[in-house]
Design a protein around this nucleic acid. Structure first.
Length: 322
DNA sequence: CATCAGGGCCCTG
DNA sequence: CAGGGCCCTGAT
């Protein structure tokens, strides 16, 4: 699909704002739906069933930020569509987040303070909708990075839409409920294994309108967690990711998967990944970050993966096994 | 070659 | 509440 109609919008985030670490998370292993280079991010977005291409360009500084957002579409977009798209972007990337209290509380933390200095203005956030994140969450389960990317890619190429805009070709997600005519067997043929059943059931759930992302956003964390765990194929690991990335709870930390446990053990206790610190002890350690514990660990985690972009970290390569 | 453990989750006993 | 089964893939 060729997207030749453009609409240019200027977005002013709250201050301070760091473009690159907000729009590019090196630990989110990309697979054909976005591209990044310093100061520019291209991505696709399925908004209200309409596939659009977006090019974000940094046009400001950390203390006087300005983002140019170019929207590419097939036909002219109605004003209210564009308005709702902008507010959704502001939500997903936390462009209005006030980080001052978090920064103030972290000043005296020997580990966090230098990381914040480097990443000052970085927002947490994730580009995906709830439905999309659920699909991603399922392909992350019980698989290495390489295999997760491969599964996600094959799903996009079979059920997504290839968009051409600004000289790029990127895949756009299908609609929630868009797999109604796809059988579990067909999904299995794409080598996603037992996850085929999970994806079918999640898609059915959305197709029947049993869950609404906007409604869920306005409910409390316990309700969100309860509703999400009702989904077949969603357990503690996936819910934990969702509460942070999609529902923006900075204070919730109740789960550490084995590979993350090894990385935290090395980062926070300089312990050999072969001999990791118990999960309970790690969780207790994170308590020092209070109501920003997950945000704090996000900063430290992103710092590690940004380092990986420029320097070789052997022990980390060993753990992520791309 | 064969075996095995993954960036979990569901189901059973 | 512990443990088996599920899928494919790359490592050993």
């Amino acid at each position: 699909m060729n997207l030749n109609v453009t609409d240019k919008i200027e977005i002013t985030p709250s201050t301070p704002f760091a473009f690159d670490p907000t729009f590019h998370k090196p630990d989110h292993f990309t697979s054909g739906d976005n591209l990044w280079e310093p100061g520019i991010r291209w991505q696709t977005l399925n908004w209200q069933g309409m596939p659009v291409g977006i090019k974000f360009t940094s046009e400001g500084t950390i203390d006087e930020p300005k983002i140019s957002m170019m929207v590419f579409s097939e036909a002219q977009l109605p004003h209210d569509f564009v308005d709702s798209l902008i507010s959704e972007i502001r939500y997903r990337y936390n462009l209005d987040l006030d980080l001052s209290d978090f920064y103030k509380r972290s000043q005296k933390d020997a580990m966090l303070a230098p990381v914040i200095e480097k990443l000052r203005g970085m927002r947490p956030g994730h580009p995906s909708s709830l439905y999309e994140y659920l699909i991603i969450g399922v392909v992350l389960q019980n698989a290495s990075v390489r295999r997760s990317i491969q599964m996600f890619q094959v799903l996009l190429e079979n059920y997504g839409t290839l968009l051409e805009f600004d000289g790029k070709e990127l895949w756009c997600f299908w609609n929630p409920g868009g797999l109604q005519n796809v059988s579990e067997e067909e999904l299995r043929a794409l080598k996603i294994g037992y996850r085929a059943k999970f994806i079918k059931k999640i898609d059915d759930y959305f197709s029947k309108g049993l869950i609404d992302e906007q409604t869920l956003r306005n409910q409390d964390r316990e309700t969100q967690m309860r509703e999400l765990l009702k989904l077949y194929g969603v357990g503690p690991a996936t819910v934990w990711y969702l509460l942070f990335d999609v529902f923006h709870h900075w204070d919730f930390f109740n789960h550490i998967s084995p590979w993350e446990q090894k990385i935290y053990s090395k980062l926070f206790f300089d312990r050999d990944p072969e001999n990791p610190v118990p999960v309970e002890k790690l969780l207790k350690h994170f308590e020092r970050y209070g109501k920003y514990k997950q945000l704090a660990v996000h900063y430290i985690w992103e710092d590690l993966f940004w380092k990986r972009e420029t320097e070789h970290i052997p022990w980390l390569e060993e753990e992520i096994r791309i």
